[in-house]
Design a protein around this nucleic acid. Structure first.
Lengths: 335, 335
DNA sequence: CCTTTGCCTGTAATCGGTTACATCCATTAT
DNA sequence: ATAATGGATGTAACCGATTACAGGCAAAGG
């Protein structure tokens, strides 16, 4: 029945005042007579008027919306990070939108365009396909923060765990429990985090004076399919590893499943260590030993840093590493 | 270095034409001399000009963005639906934004405001806390489609599986395989789908002339925690059920895990049937027997229906049920 | 009684685009 | 030679808000 939304003009007409006065009422300017305020608010009520964002934003250059750019939401890992972002956003009366790039850089550019044109006030990247230079440039112009995943050499704020240390510690834990032939499944050089985790793994091995065997590093990725592929490769090895460390829980689940089909039980015949501590990890069989990231806090902190930058474009670029934790469950054999 | 973005005026000035001409070039109007087009495009190039969405949208009332409203992304189920939506959106040069309501209706209202004010061209709801009347009203004014989850009595388009039939079929499958005491875990009346599934379960039981036992219906929810709670209740029952049918895979995973801790193996001592066929289902131990929904197609179809409605506000309201499939794996004992 | 002060409100410019309409000029038809 | 035609472009109104500035009016001060 109501074709079009009421505009500020309609309200002004009904209240018998100018649009300026209506706007002043809307923005709580104190220079309006209480009587007039009442007339206006009555008119607003009567017309069920809601101010139009576009007009407002066009003037104000503020949307109170931020965008989270995420490569995928299939990976359970991100959901808790996003919840953390939302919590902090809510506290500051901001709204969160999610953009799923799918790893496609054209799609990513479209979302960045939204930022450049102030459809959102800032972006938190959970991943990006852009080069360090592009990111630094964007970060110089607009509020941008990275979380979980960094891009080497990019001058933007980052909240994450220290992937190198975490992987190193996880590997050392395996070594301490008597494992010597440890395979490592990661996403290769695709992500900076993968690179760092690989380095952490390698250096920990080195510390124990175990010769590095490149065949044990399987850059299959972080997905279910990656785990399946890794399992197949492992089953073809002449000497089986006594432990497998995967850079994602997701891949660990499917790897365990595949190995079981071949009669090899994780936590009995072989040790498996995951990474991320996704919600499923504790319910899986065997319950997965993994690195727990403070996902919620990472998200929360990233949002706070973004707000700092929105409020002050010259806020310093910082890198914050949050504590991780080794979650010991049943998939790794202990000495 | 570049403080502000170039505007259409800057381009006009540099090209030595009016803003109208620039706008015409931008919008591929054919009434511009090729020579002039070149001047303008050169200027655009030189200034690295990108048209501002806000100004454009304010006039055009078109954003080529749609919003998907989802209660949570912790649930793995939604990701494939969203991928389907994205695929269809991409084909029609639309962009997808995700709004996570967290079940909070104030948050939901904020996103709806975006639609009302044309910050997006339409919304696909994967769930809503609104009443049927509110939804019908919104649907009358703006392009809105529901997917997966309906709201009884709401006059809006819907794409889903037939939850009643699916639950009924799943229950019948359990009955056919000799199970007689079947517990059912759902979200109670919270979701219409839950209600329908409960009804499907109940009617199937009735078909087999088994007296309905209300104690066997556990409205714990669809989350990991729900599965844990359900397991605890089941373990306290004097007579154990011989099968448990859960309205979500997620809850099934944690239930299986809890039962195992009590020495009860799903697929050996008890049967467990899930719902959704989330990615983890096939890798879980035991691999989960469940109802597979065509999530991708649901999303794709929902997007297509939304586009129909965006293009023609009077497009008919339709309900489309897509085929589901019983995915038989190892968690249900067969006769 | 006239001027000043200050509160309240309206007018109009503005944000960055789009587009109806007017205008100009070169062709073509009469 | 004049009028009609139509292509290319400019002018200005408009979308829905915000806000600087101006102005009106009543109370206070001289």
């Amino acid at each position: 029945m109501v074709n079009d939304l009421a505009t500020i003009k309609d309200v002004a007409k009904l209240a018998g005042v100018s649009v300026a006065t209506v706007s002043r009422v809307l923005n709580q300017s104190n220079s309006v007579k209480p009587e007039t305020v009442k007339q206006v608010t009555d008119a607003i009520e009567a017309l069920d008027y809601h101010p139009n964002f576009l007009g407002r934003t066009l003037r104000r250059l503020e949307t109170r919306k931020i965008l989270v750019m995420v490569p995928t939401i299939s990976n359970q890992f991100y959901s808790r990070v996003i919840r953390g972002i939302q919590a902090a956003a809510f506290d500051h009366r901001y709204h969160v939108m999610l953009g799923i790039s799918g790893g496609d850089s054209e799609s990513e550019q479209q979302y960045i365009e939204m930022l450049r044109h102030r459809l959102v006030d800032g972006i938190i990247f959970l991943h990006s396909g852009m080069s360090a230079e592009e990111i630094s440039e964007l970060g110089a112009d607009c509020p941008v923060v990275f979380a979980c995943e960094q891009v080497e050499g990019a001058r933007v704020s980052l909240v994450s765990i220290n992937d190198y240390n975490a992987a190193s510690e996880a590997t050392t834990f395996l070594l301490q429990n008597g494992h010597r032939r440890i395979a490592f499944v990661s996403a290769g050089d695709l992500y900076a985090s993968s690179k760092l985790r690989t380095k952490g793994y390698r250096d920990a091995i080195g510390q124990y004076h175990i010769p590095f065997d490149p065949h044990l590093v399987l850059p299959e990725g972080l997905t279910f399919n990656a785990g399946v592929r890794a399992a197949k490769k492992i089953l073809q090895m002449e000497t089986f590893p006594d432990a497998v460390f995967l850079a994602s829980d997701t891949a660990a689940f499917s790897l365990i499943s595949e190995l079981r089909k071949a009669g090899i039980q994780a936590g009995r015949d072989i040790s498996v260590m995951g990474f991320d501590n996704t919600p499923t990890a504790e319910y899986f069989s065997p319950a997965l030993t993994t690195i727990s990231q403070p996902q919620f806090d990472i998200g929360k902190r990233a949002m706070e840093l973004l707000l700092d930058r929105i409020q002050d474009p010259n806020a310093p670029v910082v890198t914050e590493y949050l504590p991780y934790r080794l979650e010991i469950r049943d998939s790794v054999l202990l000495k």
